[in-house]
Design a protein around this nucleic acid. Structure first.
Lengths: 225, 225
DNA sequence: ACAAAAATATAGTAATACTATCGGAAATAC
DNA sequence: GTATTTCCGATAGTATTACTATATTTTTGT
């Protein structure tokens, strides 16, 4: 059932491909959990090593530091979202329907198997909502961008911008609308959970209906259905 | 000329009021510069102490740690924006005009004196664009929210949401639209500088015209002028 | 001028963020 | 099926970070 897909991120993001070894997969799997448990600031490779009964030095053979590890995970997430959008849009021609599928897919209502048997979909999603923006809000953003660290996000954004242009070819801000859509999905999910006065929606029992409605409302009003 | 205004943030954010002493003001002033210089991750109180020729221990008497220091600065910024909105909207009745002033004010086209002679407006703005979201993307967000750490942001958001409702009383998502407006201002400023493929605007020579146009376009299409 | 408050100097600790090296185990190559 | 990489674990070590404590000096308010 769990049809695994190979999801690739920029190879400058790791020293040794974590997807190619048992330890690497363990680092990813438990790393996601531990970042969610502790928050990125308190997360360390040493603590992760303790949790997976390995050593700090071993983890450092895969990732240069925790920031790069975060970028790896977030890149992986975005690439996975892009894959799911392609999958869910198969055989769909109408760009309006496509954009609705995009919305559904990024708020995560449309369920699909885990990206790999060793990655918990919901944990990774939680990580991206909580820590995702820290991946590119760093001093080194320009060098890292040059090295292609954010390629998967940019590709996803370009895809969504293309669909927006298909709907309304004269819309002047397709890329901005696409990045807002991606930001909104995570922000309002976060606000609903932690800063409810910054949003109008409520999320109970993982029910994303209100979030989906909000986002559809915003994007279609913006681009003019 | 430089009419200083007293801007107050939640008093749980500091141990000793930095605005009340010379050293406190120096910590704020040079702290903003140093965070921008180094990035939040590399910024330490020790380095700041070196820069202002004081000691780590002295800074710790004002702020419990660098995260709280960041929240302090960001809170200050938001409160200052709210003050400027009130100031710029004085004697304006028409909510549409008000909202345009809000947009102008948050993208920082409307110039006003520094919030205090020891705070560089543009440096603080840069800090908020770069590091602002880290203030509330932390594990402790719920406790900190309970303590009122994010009061200034929430107050600002409520003000903007109110103006939106004045324009369109049946608009279903005023708080979400307000927080999106605040997020967009910072995000697109950041994207224009560092990840241009995520936006459609260009910012040259501190000229915020395109950003302002983008934001007006978005918000007024959304709420239906 | 004196008391209180503020700032400095100094020191110390546990944890973080690494780097280096060595030896054994496991996978793979031929 | 042995040789040989490759991988992993163990151990150790360093500079820096993130604090806390305390004693002394400087500034200030009255």
């Amino acid at each position: 059932m769990a049809a695994s897909v190979q999801i690739n991120v920029n190879e400058n993001l790791y020293l040794r491909d974590p997807q190619s070894t048992k330890l690497g997969k363990k680092i990813i799997k438990e790393g996601i959990f531990l970042i969610n448990d502790l928050g990125l600031e308190s997360f360390t490779f040493k603590k992760l090593a303790g949790r997976i009964e390995s050593t700090e030095a071993s983890i450092y053979r895969y990732f240069t530091n925790k920031h790069i590890f975060l970028v790896y995970l977030v890149s992986y997430y975005w690439e996975w979202v892009r894959f799911r959008i392609d999958f869910n849009c198969m055989n769909v021609e109408d760009p309006v329907r496509k954009l609705k599928i995009v919305v559904k897919t990024i708020v995560d209502t449309v369920r699909l198997a885990n990206p790999a048997e060793y990655i918990d979909r919901d944990e990774l999603h939680h990580l991206v909502i909580f820590e995702g923006s820290k991946a590119y809000h760093v001093k080194e953003v320009d060098e890292e961008n040059k090295q292609g660290f954010f390629r998967t996000l940019k590709a996803l954004n370009a895809k969504i911008a293309g669909i927006i242009l298909d709907i309304n070819p004269s819309f002047p801000y397709p890329k901005a609308a696409a990045s807002d859509l991606l930001e909104m999905a995570n922000n309002h999910h976060y606000y609903a959970a932690h800063l409810p006065s910054l949003t109008d929606i409520v999320i109970r029992d993982e029910n994303m209906e209100e979030l989906e409605k909000l986002m559809e409302y915003f994007i279609f009003r913006l681009i003019g259905q």
